[in-house]
Simulated scan of single mutants.
Amino acid sequence: ARWSAWLLVETPAAAGRLAEAAQTAEQAAQACAADLAYSWQTRFLAAQLWCTALRGGGADEVVRRAGDLTDRTLPVLARGYTIAAASLVEADGGLLAPARARLATAPTGSTTVDVLLDWVGREAAWLDGQPDRAVAPVTARGGPALVDGLRRITARWAAYDAGAPDEFAADPAADRLPPVAQTLAAWAAADGFATAARAWHDLSVREEVRCLLAHGLHESDPAQAVPPLLAAEQLAEQAGLVVLVGRAHRALRRHAVRRDSRGPRSGSELTDRERDVLRLVAQGEPTRRIAGQLGISGETVETHIRAGMRKLGARTRTEAAALALEVLR
C-alpha cells in the first residue's frame, strides 16, 4: 500500500503534475502518521516539499520545514528530496553559500536523488554566475523526466551565458513533456519563448519567469523585449526569486528601463540582535535552533525576522537574509 501511494506521488511529479503529486503526498503522509509509519511519512513529507519548491511560493515555509526534517534521522530518499527542495529555494532567494553548503551534505546512492541534486547543484552554479559548472559532464543519469528536462534547460541557459554551444544530449523521455519540449524548441529556434512561458504557467513559476526572461533577451526591439522582461520581473518579485529579479533588472537596463532595487529604509538600521538572527537564517538554521543558540524564544526570533524584513524592504525571510548578508559584509 505504501509503495502504491509512493508511485501515485512519484509518477505525476516526474510528469510535471506537481500540484497533484503534492496533494497526494500530503494525504499519504497523514495516513502514515496515523499508522506510526515514520520512515514512509518522512518520504511523503519530503516529496511534498520538493513539489512545493519546484512549483514556487512558500519559500520560507519550505526552508523551515526542511530544517525540521533534516534534524531527524531520515531515509536516503527523504533526505535527498528535502535537501534538494531547501537548496533550490535558498539559491533562488540569493542564499547561494548556504545552498552549496547544504548540497555538500546530501546523500548519494539513489538514482532519483542523484539526478535531483545534480540539477539543483547546476542550477545553483548558474544562478551564482558560474555557467561552466552548470554544463559540467553529466555523471547522474536517468531519474524523473521533468528534472532531467530542467537540467537540459539549465544547460541551455549556461551555454547562452558562456557564449558556448550546448552539448547536452537529447532525452526523448523529457521531450515528451510539453513545457520542456517547447522550451528547448524555443532555445533551438531563438523564438517561441512566450508559448513556452504559458506552458509553465500552472506548473512552475520559476520556469515561467526564465522563459519570459529568455524572450526579452532574444528580442532586439525594445517594444518587443520590454513587456516580457517586465512580466518576468513582477513574477520573480512576487515569488521571492531574488537572483532572477536581478537578471530581469539588468536586462531592462539594456533598454534604458531603470529599476531601483529595494534597499534598507532610510533611518532604519538593523539592530545587533536582528543582524544575529538574520545571519543565522542565512546559514539555513530553523527558528527553534536560532532560539536555542541565542537564548531567546521562537516567538522573539520571528519578531526580529519580521522587523528585519520591514527595514530591508523584503517580502520573505529568505530575501531578508540575502539582503542582510549584503549589509553585513
Rank of each mutant, 00 (worst) to 15 (best):
Q238S: 11
A174K: 03
A320F: 01
R72C: 13
S87D: 02
L323I: 02
L77P: 06
D35L: 12
S204L: 03
T271N: 07
L241W: 15
L74F: 05
E237Y: 00
I153P: 13
W40Y: 14
W200G: 00
L45D: 10
V245W: 00
A186Q: 02
E219V: 06
R275H: 11
Y81Q: 02
Q41A: 02
A320K: 02
V63F: 05
L146P: 02
I296Y: 04
E167G: 04
E10Y: 04
V245R: 00
L146M: 09
R288K: 13
R265S: 02
R79A: 14
G313S: 06
V205S: 12
E219D: 08
D92S: 10
G295W: 01
A307Q: 09
E26Q: 14
Q238M: 10
T70H: 11
T316G: 03
I305C: 10
A37G: 09
R64D: 08
A320D: 01
R156P: 13
T183S: 14
R152Y: 03
T82Q: 03
R289E: 15
A199E: 06
Q27M: 09
Q224A: 13
L96S: 09
L69D: 01
R258V: 12
R141W: 09
V180Y: 07
Q23H: 10
R17G: 04
G93Y: 01
V135M: 12
G57S: 07
P12C: 06
L7K: 15
D71F: 08
E237I: 00
H201M: 11
R315M: 06
E285K: 12
A33Y: 04
R250N: 11
D276I: 09
D92I: 05
D114K: 05
A199H: 05
G298W: 15
E299G: 13
G163H: 08
A66M: 06
D191R: 11
G149L: 03
G94D: 12
C51T: 03
D166S: 10
